[in-house]
Simulated assay, not measured.
Amino acid sequence: MTKSQSPSIHPTALVETGAELGKGVRIGPFCHVGPHVVIGDDVELMSHVVVTGDTAIGAGTRVFPHAVLGAEPQNTAYRGERTKLVIGRNNTIREGVTMHIGTGNARGETIVGDNCMFLAYSHVAHDCVLGDYVTFSNNVMIGGHTTIGDRVIIGGGAGVHQFCTVGHHAFIGGIAAVVNDVIPYGMVVGSRAYLAGLNLVGMKRSGMSRDNINALRHAYKELFADNGRPLRENAQRLLADYPDNEPVRDLAEFVLSDSKRKFVTPLTGRRARLEDGI
């Protein structure tokens, strides 16, 4: 390893014996890196960062001051077993962010994808799985065993209940309390979160074709139509009506999949009238 490729460790930082550091790693003042940590190439820990537990950080990730990665889960079932936190490549982890390892009686690892951004004081709990290009705004909290799909954006102060699944390309507004599953492409708002349509901005940004966007808009109306049929039956009809449309099929299969939670749905009845100011 050449001098330019060697890790740069500030004299006040503590890197315990056993930690593995990649090429070009930079560890700033007063950081603490535990003995079971693996840090990929060109990762930067700015200052006062704690990386502990059995934690791996992918190449190119930047971690800002006072983040704590790989601490024990906040779960009374945890008994000190060896579990993991795996963070992907090119992530931005801002000030005060916390991410915890998994629990031995569940998945056993917490997984964060690539190219994600976690703004200040957001939290990823134990046994969660996050996709790529996910954005958590300030103070976002997700409970244990939560699954977050690719390109999901969660607004400031929002919370997602444990065991929920948020489908890819969904948008969750600030301060929303999400207690049920969110469909792919869904747009969720409200202090007691409800579905307010599709995340059209996110769909366009991802390069989705106009035909697929229009198909999803029609499918959304059919899925949540007030026709007296169960939601799953409407989803099955979508599979029959759109056999060759991948986004619509993806939406229908999400609804038909097994889940511990119900779904976030559009407002109806009296609550809808209250939200509209009627």
Rank of each mutant, 00 (worst) to 15 (best):
G40H: 06
T98S: 09
D226R: 15
I9F: 09
N138S: 03
I153G: 14
A71D: 07
I93K: 02
R62F: 12
G88A: 12
D258S: 04
G22V: 07
G173K: 04
A177C: 06
N75T: 04
V166I: 15
G28E: 07
Y121S: 15
D250M: 15
G88H: 09
G18C: 02
G24I: 10
A125P: 03
R151E: 10
I148S: 02
D244L: 11
I278G: 14
M141F: 14
G277S: 07
A59F: 06
R79Y: 00
E16K: 13
N234S: 14
A240D: 15
D150G: 07
K84F: 01
F171E: 09
V140A: 10
N139T: 15
T135G: 03
H126K: 02
F224C: 04
V33Y: 02
F224A: 03
H36C: 06
F118H: 06
A196Q: 08
F263Q: 00
R270F: 09
S47D: 10
R94K: 12
D114F: 12
A193P: 04
P73Q: 03
N180S: 11
L14N: 12
L195W: 07
H123K: 06
F30T: 08
A252E: 12
R270S: 12
Y220V: 05
G157V: 09
R94V: 05
I101D: 00
T83A: 00
T147D: 10
V51S: 06
D226E: 14
M141L: 15
R270G: 05
R271M: 11
A59Q: 12
M203E: 05
G269S: 13
G131T: 08
L274K: 15
T103P: 04
G156D: 10
L69E: 00
E95C: 06
V37Y: 00
Q236P: 08
D150T: 03
Y242N: 09
H123F: 11
V38N: 05
L119E: 09
A71N: 10
N199L: 08
V248K: 07
G22R: 07
V179Y: 06
V25E: 02
V188K: 04
R107N: 03
V188L: 08
G104M: 01
G131S: 10
T55E: 00
V97F: 03
V201S: 01
M141W: 11
F171G: 03
